[in-house]
Write a protein that binds this DNA or RNA. Sequence first.
DNA 1: ATACAAATGTGTATAGTTAACACAATGTTA
DNA 2: TAACATTGTGTTAACTATACACATTTGTAT
Lengths: 231, 231
Amino acid sequence: MSDTSIIRTAESERISHIDYFNIAISVDCVIFGYEEKELKVLLIKSDLKEFSGLWSLLGDLVRPQEDLDAASYRILKERTGLDNVYLEQVHTFGALNRHPSGRVISVAYYSLVDISHHQLRLTHNELHWHKLSDLNELAFDHQLILNKCLERIREQVTEKPLVFNLLPEKFSLRQLQELYQAILDVKLDRRNFRKKIMLKDWLTDLNEMEPDVPHRPGKLYKVKKILKPRI
Amino acid sequence: MSDTSIIRTAESERISHIDYFNIAISVDCVIFGYEEKELKVLLIKSDLKEFSGLWSLLGDLVRPQEDLDAASYRILKERTGLDNVYLEQVHTFGALNRHPSGRVISVAYYSLVDISHHQLRLTHNELHWHKLSDLNELAFDHQLILNKCLERIREQVTEKPLVFNLLPEKFSLRQLQELYQAILDVKLDRRNFRKKIMLKDWLTDLNEMEPDVPHRPGKLYKVKKILKPRI
DNA sequence: ATACAAATGTGTATAGTTAACACAATGTTA
DNA sequence: TAACATTGTGTTAACTATACACATTTGTAT
């Protein structure tokens, strides 16, 4: 499409390229991890002078020949080395002044990754996992984006077998319960939790015991079919 | 911002304007109404030759100085004359070839309006309310967008006092039940429905009876506090 | 005026789900 | 071998959701 091309709107208005392509579109990924009984998010030091010293989500402009899901997938792959991940679009942020360099509309995705995954390689030394419970001011409107994604996970955690993406392949029911507790920020009754999770028929008993615990070891399970929508 | 301006991405890559502003962004509104015990959607005849004869959602390009919510609000106001409406962002659609004239990414909103509202004036004679139950092929990916919005409403209808936006100010419990049935596509038990809706404490009894019914009239209610997020 | 048609308004019993709660068994460490 | 930490398990009570019927009110037709 050239600079003189025309877009027809539903109203048949004719609008020149120059007028209407002045908005850039980016994708921001809220990449969640789980470690030491805490939910974490992967952030990078902002390289904008306006936000110097602040952390920001991982994002990039969407390329002209790339769809939104592909862009989020690319960002995740570039930053973490992971390519078999859960990614879901959450919301699009388009406030006029959200980006200091110009009009940038950003589509937010969230992702759930296993921090201990052997394939995980942070590709940049200004990339760090931050505890959600201990977060300073973020660049742009990234706190807003993060909150929206967290809200979405909380809605989904009891509905869909998603959060297994945050755990290693083999896990105990205690680990799983602690994860639920971290996400929902509640304390759960152990017996009721085990009953409820078993009713969902998401887990396979591996007939193995967890190793290296200083107490009676629990059984290990894996999830039957993890949700990783092909993006 | 001029054609030579630079956007810094999180990676500090430098990307020229020409390369990265070749994507247009639009908003599409799925405007739901309710009439004759059926859910309806407001559509307009597509004016693209590629979709000649097909109906499409109401949409327009986002203007450079307009945020997304404002764009959806403007589209609704332009098309219906209504300006006190419920609007909610649902999802962003960015497939490469969704628009035949070029790369257009569209943010979908849904809206709930009272078809019988005195202020409602369709501003275009190719605008029509279509029964959801009786819909032909739509232009673009608009069937996809519609489905996503319908899904969203169904999730929310029992959680939030939203659907009152579809009804006139005064309504009977029968009308309300019929609306729920239309949205959820189920049959509900009258006694249980009334019990449950009353428990939610959303309604005020107006101490009036519905007029002009050929049978025992029901009481009229209005909603206590309707949800119309300021957009 | 009377009978009929259509819809309102109301309560209870049953089934299913969620929440609260305690103790014996297993493995580790000193 | 005793103390510690954590696993694994079942029952009861509270709450929620579902199924279900009859007398009352209004309008209409005769």
